[in-house]
Structures are given as C-alpha cells and as structure tokens.
C-alpha cells in the first residue's frame, strides 16, 4: 500500500471454502496488485484442504497462489491469521466480515472480531453480500474526526488511493452535540462562520492541508475533496458512502471494542455495503 520495506510486503488472506471467500477474493486480488505484495495464505478450515482442490473451487486463486506464502495452519483460525500477519509484518489482512453467525453489535463473526481486536496490522473487512463481482478502487471515503492522530493513521489508505488512481472523499461529520476532541491541533467544524462564501472554502482547504501533511503528502491522482455531513458519525458515513458509491471506507481506530466504545466503527461494520479498511491508530 505504500513504499514500505520488502519484509513487510505481504498481504494476509484467510482462505476457506465458504461462500464468504467468493466476496473476499476480488478485493484481495486488487489490494495485492496495488501494493505489489505477496499473498500470505492462511487456511482457516481444519483439516486444511489441499490447495489443488481450492484452485479448482476458486479459479481466481491460481494466479495468487503462484507466488504465495502458505502460513502454517493452527487450531484456531483467528490465531492463525493474527500470527501470520505479525510474523511476516504484513501490510494488511483482507478477510470477510462474517460467515453465518454475526455478533449483534459489530456485525462481525467471531473470527473477524478477534482479528480486529488484536489487529497486528490494518484489516480490510469485506461484506460477503458484495458477491463475486470484480473490485476496483475508484472512490474512497475517508472519515476524519479532525484529530492529528486520525489524520496520521490514514496514510496507508491515501497511498492506496494514490496507487489505484482513485478519488478521495475526506468526510467530516459534525452535529448538534458533537464534543470537540481534546487533542492539540484538532480541527473540527468551525464554531463561527462569519461569511460562508469565505469561511467554508478556507475551512475545507485547511482541513485537507492538515490531513495531507500529517499523512505524508501522497499524490492522489483521482482528486481529493472535502465533504461534511451533519448528524451521528456512523449512520452519516454509511449514508454518504452509499450516496457516493464508495468502493472503500477507511476508518482509523484506537483498538477498543468495549461497550460504549467504537460506536462509529460498529455501525459502519454492520451497515456498510463496501469493504471497510480499519487502520489501527498506533500502526506505523
């Protein structure tokens, strides 16, 4: 996803024979191609199915498996994924949000939730409902709460958008009871709008300038646009992404899934129609 050292250039791809993998495969293919990465295959079914069988079941896998690393199988699928990502310092994990039983508050299944909680690297969570259609990154929605830490965290996503030639829609959601972040250097919606004809363009420029400079100034060929929505962040992000036919939503996350935490992330994961890239805020 970015100009990273060679040892990090792997993408972890959990592989099984369920229907969810049909939806994950096109996303994984695109991510691996854009990042010029090596796939790191983690078989999550026990006992592992021979690769030849998998190739027959998923013809798209053939090319990927040519240069893939095969991670050792483990008793617990989540552990296998996490360890593979940690040991090969992977760029990211691409996996399905769920198969079968979904947790009520995140919409994820047990494996995806455990991987998310551990999150040794960014995770692309793919809704199985998207089906087997090819995946192209044309429009990326990048919600930002205006804090420097969030802006820094999304550097890989901006790099990805740059590689894909995608357009980047930076989205700030604000509302009646929005509490301004305490982090120094945060920029949220302006409290005073003396003259909207001047204030809004200046504010949008400033917001984008900060995101760009804090996240590393990656060139974005598809253009970068500042957008704002009013209301609760979770529903507004989903609504905005649908309205703009987003191919990817990028969320940075502090890594806490305790009750009352991560309300935005929970809502987006439950309702997003497109893949969601979750970036740990501490990730380098």
């Amino acid at each position: 996803m970015s100009a990273v050292p060679v040892e990090k250039n792997t993408v972890v791809l959990p592989l099984d024979t369920t229907a969810r993998f049909v939806a994950v495969l096109p996303v994984a293919e695109t991510v691996i191609r854009l990042a010029q990465a090596t796939p790191c295959i983690v078989q999550t079914e026990m006992p592992p199915i021979p690769l030849s069988e998998l190739k027959n079941k998923f013809p798209g896998l053939k090319t990927l498996l040519e240069h893939a690393i095969i991670a050792p199988p483990r008793e617990r699928p989540a552990e296998a994924i996490i360890r593979a990502a940690a040991e090969s310092h992977s760029l990211c994990i691409v996996m399905a949000m769920h198969e079968g039983q979904r947790k009520a508050d995140t919409g994820l299944d047990g494996i995806a939730e455990e991987v998310l909680c551990e999150m040794p690297c960014p995770v692309v969570l793919v809704p199985p409902e998207r089906g087997a259609a090819p995946w192209r990154v044309r429009q990326v929605v990048l919600p930002q709460d205006g804090t420097p830490v969030t802006a820094r965290a999304v550097a890989p996503a901006i790099a990805l958008a740059g590689c894909a030639g995608a357009g980047l829609l930076v989205l700030h959601v604000s509302g009646a009871h929005a509490v301004p972040p305490r982090e120094p250097g945060s920029l949220t919606a302006p409290r005073y709008v003396d003259q909207p004809q001047h204030e809004w363009p200046a504010w949008a420029r400033e917001f984008l300038d900060r995101v760009r400079s804090l996240s590393g100034e990656y060139p974005v060929k598809g253009g970068i646009q500042m957008c704002m929505a009013r209301g609760e962040p979770g529903p507004e992000i989903v609504r905005f992404a649908r309205g703009h036919r987003a191919d990817l939503i990028v969320l940075s996350w502090r890594g806490e899934l305790a009750p009352r935490c991560a309300r935005t992330l929970r809502h987006v994961l439950q309702h997003a129609l497109c893949p969601v890239l979750v970036l740990p805020e501490s990730h380098k």
Binding site: G175, H177, A178, A189, P190, R230
Partner: peptide
C-alpha cells in the same frame, strides 16, 4: 451543544 456546528448548519 455549546460547541456544535453553527446552528444554521444543523
């Protein structure tokens, strides 16, 4: 909220 968006935006 006191720190909200300008009310005309809301």
């Amino acid at each position: 909220g006191p720190d909200a968006l300008p009310l005309d935006m809301i």
